[in-house]
Amino acid sequence: MDYDIAIVGGGPIGLAFARSLAGFGLKLAIIERQPLAALARPDYDGREIALSQRSVRILDDLGVRHLLPPGGVASLAAAHVLNGGAKRALVLDPARRRRELGKMVSNQDLRRALFEGVAGQDGLDWLVERDVEGIAFEPASAALSLNDGRTLRTPLVVAADGRLSQTRQAFGLGAEMNALGRSMLVVKVAHEHDHGQIATEWFDHGQTLALLPLQPRQSSFVLTLGDREIRELCALPPAALAAELERRSKRRWGSITLLSEPFRYPLVTTFAHRFVAPRAALIGDAAVGMHPVTAHGFNLGIQGQATLARQLAESARRGSDLGDLRPLRRYEQRHRLLCRPVFEATNHIVSLYTDERPHARALRGALLGLGARTRLPRTMIGTMLA
């Protein structure tokens, strides 16, 4: 065998998975099409990640949380959900024993910290600027054909190459895929009124807005509309786009100034039919690509890689075959049990709160009103972030 495990994809979840396996004497390869410099110094891409308390603990366990820049980590105290023109918000706050829901950190800083965490890791090889062109599964190994003409053999291939994963296709694992025909505009802004470290999700009529708190009077502004409308907004000059964001937010946060260029992300959700196959496993968005409205994508991904890593670490301690399907299936069972309810609930929320028919408007208003009068939302959030 050339490697004990080959990881396809050097994004945050692939890097976290490699770090989770440090210290077990395994020889790992990360296969990534980007050059090493792009992994070490990732560009800002507009995305800000809401880390749950559990994800923060995993980053602590990986020994990388301290590598995040102190000035780049913001507290997430609570979340407010708004419906149309209703003035009353559904307040989602943490369980009583906690003071915050989690942390806000940029995807750029998170990727940089995870890269630094695995840099120099014993037994880890970087196969960068390479693609997997084919995979042949044999009884005792998987043979990966790379675009540089090299063939690697390994007991296990782990795909961490995103929701449109080509590796998943090479595994022969299908997925539920839903291209929503809508896109997000994401831009970092400064605004007049303070956010109070509160994230706001606003299901307005014909659009969805989100304000994710960063530093004082600075936030990530997220606007979801049809693809064509988002393209047109991204093409506006900065002053004109800022004025449009003020108008669409009804100046809820006062005057707005852009602090970054706008980024456009088409919305596609995925859920793999299976997360594992003989000598193959999916993690991160390759397994489950969430709608971003509930901010669970990264959190589910980093929990999933930790679950798989624990199974493989136990196999390594026993000297067992790392590609044995039995521990892989235990990972699949546990991760599906975690992800499926959240995936379905998120899709139902998006469907209901973007439906402009009169009966849907009435129902979502009634549901938010019920939530505002009960302890259920607080209990659910506290459970998810435990």
Rank of each mutant, 00 (worst) to 15 (best):
H66V: 08
L241V: 11
R336W: 10
M104V: 15
G284C: 04
A37D: 10
L180H: 11
H335S: 08
D324F: 05
G10Q: 10
V81D: 08
L223M: 12
T208K: 10
G9N: 07
A159D: 08
L363R: 08
E246C: 09
E116D: 14
F24T: 08
L212H: 11
Q197G: 01
G63V: 06
V56T: 14
A136T: 09
Y44L: 03
K103V: 05
G46P: 01
G23V: 08
A316P: 04
G284A: 10
T354F: 04
V288C: 13
H335P: 00
V56P: 00
T257A: 15
Q166K: 12
R248V: 06
L67W: 04
E232A: 14
M384C: 11
E244T: 14
Y265C: 05
R326P: 01
A86R: 14
R41P: 00
R130P: 02
V268H: 06
A240C: 10
M177D: 00
N299A: 03
Q207R: 15
R57G: 09
G123S: 06
R98P: 00
S20M: 10
L337S: 13
T379R: 15
V128S: 09
Q34W: 01
D355H: 02
I349R: 06
N147D: 15
L28T: 05
Q121K: 09
M384R: 12
D161K: 05
G289E: 06
S145E: 15
G301K: 02
L282G: 01
S55N: 09
P238F: 12
R279W: 01
V81E: 10
A143D: 05
L124Q: 13
Y265H: 14
H273N: 11
R334D: 12
N178A: 06
R112Q: 15
K27C: 08
I230E: 01
R217P: 02
A143E: 12
A190Y: 03
P139W: 05
E244G: 06
C234V: 14
G174T: 09
A159F: 02
Q215Y: 02
G196R: 01
H296G: 00
V350C: 01
Q311S: 06
L328M: 13
R98V: 10
H191Y: 09
S260M: 11
L338Q: 12
A309R: 03
R252T: 14
L173F: 06
A170C: 02
R111V: 05
Q108I: 07
I13W: 01
S249H: 06
L325D: 10
C234N: 05
L214P: 02
I198L: 14
T307M: 13
M384F: 13
L114K: 07
V56W: 07
E356C: 03
G72S: 06
S220M: 06
V157A: 05
V118G: 00
L180P: 00
S220C: 13
G174I: 07
P292V: 03
W253C: 07
V128T: 15
A6E: 03
L245F: 11
Y3R: 07
G319E: 10
G85E: 15
H205V: 13
G84D: 13
S55V: 09
Q333L: 14
N178F: 04
S320C: 10
P237T: 12
V276G: 00
P94R: 07
A159V: 00
D355G: 00
H80E: 15
D148T: 09
A95L: 12
Q121W: 08
L82I: 08
Q166A: 14
I31H: 06
V189F: 06
Q166L: 07
V158K: 03
T224F: 04
D4E: 03
A372K: 01
Q34T: 03
M1R: 07
T270P: 01
